[in-house]
Design a protein around this nucleic acid. Sequence first.
RNA 1: GGCCCGUUGGUCUAGCGGUGAGGACGCCGCCCUCUCAAGGCGGAAAUCACGGGUUCGAAUCCCGUACGGGCUACCA
Length: 489
Amino acid sequence: MPESVRVRFAPSPTGHLHIGGARTAIYNWAFARRHGGAFVLRIDDTDPERSTDENVRAILSSLRWLGLDWDEGPEAGGDHGPYFQTERADSYRDALARLKASDAVYPCFCAPEELAAKREEARAGGGFAGYGRTCRRLDPAVASDRVAAGEPHAWRLRVPDDRGDIVFADAVRGESVFRAEVMDDFVIARSDGTPTYNFATVVDDIGMEITHVIRGDDHLSNTPRQILVFEALDAQVPVFAHLSMIWGPDGKRLSKRHGATSVEAYRELGYLPEALVNYLALLGWSLDDKTTVIDRETLAAAFSLERVSKNPAIFDAEKLDWLNGVYLRELPPAAYVDRMLPWLVDAGLLTAEEGAARREWLSELAPLVAERAKRLDEIVPMVAFLFDEEVTIDAGSRSKALEKEGVSKALDAAASVLGDIGEFTPAAIEEALRSVPEAVGVKPKLVFQGVRVAVSGSTVSPPLFESLALLGKERSIARILAARRTLQG
RNA sequence: GGCCCGUUGGUCUAGCGGUGAGGACGCCGCCCUCUCAAGGCGGAAAUCACGGGUUCGAAUCCCGUACGGGCUACCA
C-alpha cells in the first residue's frame, strides 16, 4: 500500500482568502478527504511587509466558514509544526547547511543590480536570460575565503551537470518536460540569510511529508526548480497537480475590477458556503457528464485530480446565484431561519431577542421566501412589510393595482370578510377572499392585486394568503382600510 | 525575447478513433398560477480556434499557425 496522502494549502497572508485560493483549498481538502489523508494548512508569511495577523485570522475564518477543516495547522496543531514559515527558520538553516556540506550549493557574490543589467541585455539580445553561473566557476578555496571575510553573498543551487531534462507527471496536465539547459543556478538563500520561496516551500513540504502538491498553475514554471531542490536534499519528490486560473468575465485574471474577489465578500453578499464550495468545485472539475449540484460530502467522496480540467475558467456570478438558490431552497425551515435571521437583524427589522422569541412565526415565513430568494440579502426587501409599522405604496403600484375600477369596493368587501374570520389561517383567508370577486363583480386578479398592494405596498410579494396570516388579522384589515381611504368612491 | 501551458454553444463542462457532439447556467416560448418566484415541458444557440497530416473513419492521435495565459527576481 502507498503511504498515506498528505496535502497542504499554503496561503500567504498578504490579503484575505481569494476565490482562486479558495478553490485550491477546496481541491486539496477534497483530495485529502477522498483518500483518507491529511489536509495541512501552512501559512507562508515570509513577506514581512505585507503579511498581517489580521489577514491570517481572516483566512482561517473564511476556510472555516467554507467548512474546510484542516487536520494540521494553526489552531489545530500537529506533529509537523510549526505551521508558520516565520517560525521555521531553523529547518531552512539546517537544510542549507546540508546542501553546503554536500556541495550542492555555492556562494554567489554578484551584485543584484549587475545581474539585472545582464538579464536585460540578454533578453534584449533574444535568448536565455538566466544566471550565467559566474560564481560557479570561482575557485572553491577563494570563494570560501571571501565568505569567511564576510563579503555579502547569496547561495545558489548547483544544477548537476549530468542532470538531464526535468520530467514529471503532473496529475492534471500529464507529462511535463523542462529542458535542462534552461535551468539556471537559482538563489535559494538570500544574502541576509533568509530562504527564497522555492527553497522554503520545498523544505516545508519535505518536513511536512507532503505527498501531493496541488496548487495554481502560476507555479508550474517553478516546479522543475523545486524538483531540483527535492533531489539535492535527497527527498522523495511529491506528485504535482497544477490548477488553471480563474478569470473575470473579460478573460483577465480575476481582480477587484470584477467586483467581489474574496470569500469574505461573498459571505457578506448573502451566499451560502455550501453553494460557493459547490460552484468553485465545479469551476474546473466535474463529477460526471450531468451532475451540477454536489454537496461537500459527495465532493469529499468523489473528487479526483484526473477529472480536473486544464483550461482556465471564467467566473460566472449568475450560475453561482442559481446554485445558491438551489441550496437555499433545500434548507429546512428551522435552518433557513438560522441563516436568514442575522440579515433581518442587521437590517433593523427586529432584534436578535425578538427573533429568538418569534422562531415559530419565522419558520412559517421561511418557506414563503425560500423559493424566491437566490441570496440571503434579497430576503430583507421581500419581507420588510411584515415588520414595518405601516407600508408606503409607491406611485407605480398604486396606479397599477389600486386606482382601478371597482377596487375600492373590493377592498371594503375584503376588509369585511376578513373581519368575520375566526382563526386567521391561510386557508380561511383564501376562502374568504375568493368570495369577494363574485360578490362585488370585480375580476379576481384585480381583487387580489388590490389587497396585495394595500398590505405589502407592492405588486410583487410573497403569496398573499400566507402573508396576511403572518401579518395578523388586525394589521391586515387596518392596512386594507387605510388604502381604501385614499381612494375615491 | 526565452521557456512552459491552454483553446468544445455567451459561460462552466461531458467526450478520451465511429455520438443526431450530452448536461448545467443564462436566453426565448408554452403550461401551472393571487403577483413574483419555484416547478414542468419545449426551443434557439458549437463550421469542436485555424491549417496540414496519420487513419476506412478524428472534437479525440501527430505537426505547424493564430489567439489567450503563466513564469522568466537575492517576490510569493
